[in-house]
């Protein structure tokens, strides 16, 4: 027994340390990087001055403080949350649907939220309303998918996925309709930019409300993570093992929808994270969800933090986050596909 634990620690010590340090490293990095050049020591000093009362002795310019505390810090926190939740919901859905091609958007969250945001941008343009509308429509889309799939009282996984595709297509065309009627000089650009996904302009005010659904869902999913192993065996076997499959499914889908909707509401449509990160993590730590779930949160957070830093640093004009995640994600996924078998066996 002790041997097993020791072996586990030895085998996983390195990866555990890396998985804890990775997001912290990229979090700090994203505070240092930006168009407005601030020396690293000043950044550190500013952060410390917020916790310890030393600001009197070192005179930190107001502008630097605002840049770091009001702009970069909320943005880094948002990136962490968005990355962790998108990757976690991708991992959960891949286990739940027993399908490696499924991502956090399979049930139409992103399409619904995209439509909600586009509609709000068309009608009002107030950022808070846009976020709430995106959040609401994201959940409405999943609720419709789930309702459609329940025609036959029970919910077979296949019906659910198909219903998600139908609802996703419906909301995508509704978004196109909104774009079509939008004023092409004022409203349309903001809709298009929103749909590309970006973390620019995130403030503590926006984070304050989306923080709660994201953290709560993450905690619940982390707590039930071992059950995802059992769910991934398939409906019948999970039932035979005494698991209430229908209840678990509703729980996982609700949590994923809640946090994905919140993530999309803050960051817009950021693709590829929910699909690629779970595969990367499965290669790093194996398929056991006991470890895979925390790992995917860590890697997801680090990935979005890194990509967002890149989006800000690479050129004078910020590249939309959603565009960059796909540009980096797609070839990387292809590389993994060639190298390994993604930890899935089709048999």
């Amino acid at each position: 027994m002790l041997k097993r634990i020791l072996k586990e620690i030895r085998g996983r010590k390195a990866s555990t340390t890396i998985l804890i340090l990775l997001p912290i490293l990229f979090f700090l990095l994203s505070l240092f990087v930006g168009r407005y050049q601030i020396p690293p020591d000043i950044v550190v000093l500013t952060l410390i001055s917020k916790i310890l009362p030393i600001s009197q002795s070192h005179n930190i310019p107001k502008q630097i403080e605002i840049t770091i505390i009001q702009v970069r810090l909320p943005r880094a926190i948002a990136a962490t949350l968005v990355g962790a939740t998108l990757a976690l919901s991708g991992t959960s859905f891949q286990a739940l649907f027993r399908n490696p091609l499924v991502s956090s958007q399979i049930l139409g969250v992103a399409s619904g939220a995209g439509f909600g945001a586009a509609l709000a941008l068309l009608l009002s343009g107030d950022l808070v309303i846009v976020q709430i509308s995106a959040f609401g429509f994201g959940m409405v889309a999943v609720a419709i998918s789930y309702a459609i799939s329940r025609i036959h009282k029970e919910t077979p996984v296949l019906t659910l996925v198909l219903a998600g595709m139908v609802v996703g297509a419906l909301f995508s065309s509704l978004t196109s309709l909104v774009k079509y009627v939008a004023d092409p000089y004022e409203r349309l650009p903001s809709i298009v930019f929103w749909l590309m996904g970006s973390l620019s302009g995130v403030s503590f005010k926006e984070l304050s409300w989306s923080f709660i659904p994201m953290i709560a869902s993450c905690i619940i999913l982390v707590m039930v993570r071992w059950r995802m192993n059992v769910l991934s065996l398939g409906e019948e076997e999970a039932k035979a093992l005494g698991v209430d499959v229908e209840k678990m499914r509703i729980l996982v889908i609700s949590c994923c929808t809640l946090m994905t909707s919140a993530a999309v509401a803050i960051a817009g449509v950021v693709g590829w994270v929910g699909l690629v990160i779970p595969h990367v993590c499965r290669m790093l730590v194996g398929p056991d969800h006991k470890i895979l779930v925390p790992a995917s949160m860590s890697v997801g957070a680090a990935y979005i933090l890194a990509v967002d830093s890149l989006a800000r640093a690479v050129s004078t004009v910020e590249i939309p986050l959603g565009v960059l995640t796909a540009i980096i994600g797609a070839p990387f996924f292809f590389y993994l596909l060639r190298r390994e078998r993604l930890g899935w066996r089709w048999k």
Partner: peptide, 11 residues
């Protein structure tokens, strides 16, 4: 038994 994920036997 159709499993997709290569769980280790003990897991």
């Amino acid at each position: 038994h159709m499993t997709f994920l290569p769980y280790e036997v003990l897991d």
